[in-house]
Deep mutational scan, measured.
Amino acid sequence: VTTYKLVINGKTLKGETTTKAVDAETAEKAFKQYANDNGVDGVWTYDDATKTFTVTE
């Protein structure tokens, strides 16, 4: 299990959150659900070296 980070650069929501997941794909699903629940819809990137997803509106 690895800790992944999400950086949110939204129009109305900015911040960070983390999740523990077995792989990046599982973390991405959780983060996309989180973003959707919070009304954030943007461009996604992922940096494997830092295990960090970024979504920018």
Rank of each mutant, 00 (worst) to 15 (best):
E16K: 04
A35N: 04
A21P: 02
A30V: 12
V55G: 00
T26Q: 07
K5C: 04
Y46H: 02
K51T: 04
N36S: 12
L6E: 00
A35M: 09
K32W: 10
E28W: 14
Q33N: 14
T12R: 04
E28K: 12
Y34K: 03
I8H: 03
T12N: 15
T2V: 10
K29P: 02
T18V: 10
D47R: 03
Y46S: 01
D47T: 05
Y34C: 03
N36E: 09
E16I: 04
T45S: 15
K14H: 14
G42M: 02
T18K: 10
D48H: 12
V55E: 00
F53V: 02
A49P: 08
T50W: 04
Q33R: 11
A24T: 13
D37L: 13
K20T: 10
K29H: 12
Y4E: 00
G15L: 12
L13I: 10
D23A: 05
V1D: 10
A30R: 12
T17P: 03
E16S: 06
A49G: 07
D48W: 08
T54V: 12
K14F: 06
K11I: 15
V7F: 08
E57A: 06
G42S: 01
N38K: 14
E57S: 04
T2K: 07
T3S: 06
Y4S: 00
A30L: 10
D48S: 12
Q33G: 11
D48N: 15
V40M: 08
K51P: 00
D41E: 13
T50H: 07
F31L: 07
T2A: 10
G10Y: 14
F53C: 00
D23T: 07
K32A: 06
K32E: 04
T50S: 12
A49C: 05
K5R: 11
G10W: 14
E28H: 13
A35Y: 03
Q33F: 06
T50D: 07
T2C: 05
L6V: 03
E57N: 03
E16V: 05
T52L: 05
A35Q: 02
I8W: 08
L13T: 07
E28G: 09
A27Q: 01
K32M: 13
N9E: 15
A27C: 02
A27S: 02
K51M: 14
T56Q: 13
A35E: 01
G15Y: 15
K20G: 15
T50V: 05
E25M: 15
K32H: 10
G15N: 14
A21W: 03
E57Y: 06
F53W: 10
K5H: 11
A30T: 06
T45C: 05
K5N: 07
E57V: 08
K5W: 06
D41H: 09
E16C: 04
Y46G: 00
N9P: 03
V7E: 04
K14S: 08
T56E: 12
F31V: 02
I8R: 01
E25V: 13
F31T: 00
T12L: 13
E57W: 12
E25G: 11
I8N: 02
G39T: 05
L6Y: 01
D47I: 08
D48G: 13
T54W: 08
T12M: 11
K51R: 13
W44G: 00
T54K: 08
T45A: 11
T52D: 01
T52V: 07
K51A: 09
I8Y: 09
E16M: 04
N38L: 08
K14Q: 15
D41Q: 08
D37N: 12
V22T: 14
K29E: 09
A35G: 03
T3F: 10
V55H: 01
G10R: 04
Y34M: 06
K29M: 10
D48Y: 11
V43M: 07
T2F: 14
K14R: 14
T12G: 11
E28S: 06
T3C: 06
T56W: 09
T2G: 12
V7D: 03
E25Q: 12
T19C: 05
I8L: 09
W44P: 00
D23G: 04
A35C: 05
V43C: 05
K51V: 06
D37P: 02
K20V: 13
E16F: 06
T26R: 06
F53P: 00
K11S: 14
D37A: 07
F31I: 02
F31Q: 00
Y34Q: 04
T50Y: 08
D41A: 12
T50M: 09
N38Y: 15
A21L: 03
N36T: 13
K29N: 14
T2E: 08
V7Y: 15
V40E: 02
N36A: 14
A27D: 01
L6R: 00
V55L: 13
N38V: 07
V1P: 06
L13W: 11
A24F: 13
N36H: 14
K11L: 13
V55F: 04
T17E: 10
T56N: 09
K29Q: 11
V7W: 15
G10V: 15
T45F: 07
T19H: 07
T12W: 10
E57I: 05
E25C: 04
E28V: 14
F31E: 00
Y4H: 02
T2R: 09
L6H: 01
K11M: 14
F31G: 01
V22N: 09
V55M: 06
Y34F: 11
D47P: 00
A27G: 02
T54F: 06
E25F: 09
E16T: 08
V22I: 11
T54I: 07
V55I: 12
Y4N: 00
T19M: 14
F53E: 00
E28N: 10
E57Q: 05
V22E: 08
T54H: 06
N9I: 12
T26N: 05
T2N: 09
W44T: 01
T45G: 11
D23C: 03
N9C: 05
V1M: 14
T17S: 11
K11P: 14
Q33E: 11
E16L: 03
G10F: 14
K14M: 13
E16D: 06
K32Y: 06
A24D: 09
I8G: 02
V40Q: 03
Y34N: 02
T3P: 05
A30Q: 13
F53T: 00
T17A: 15
D23I: 03
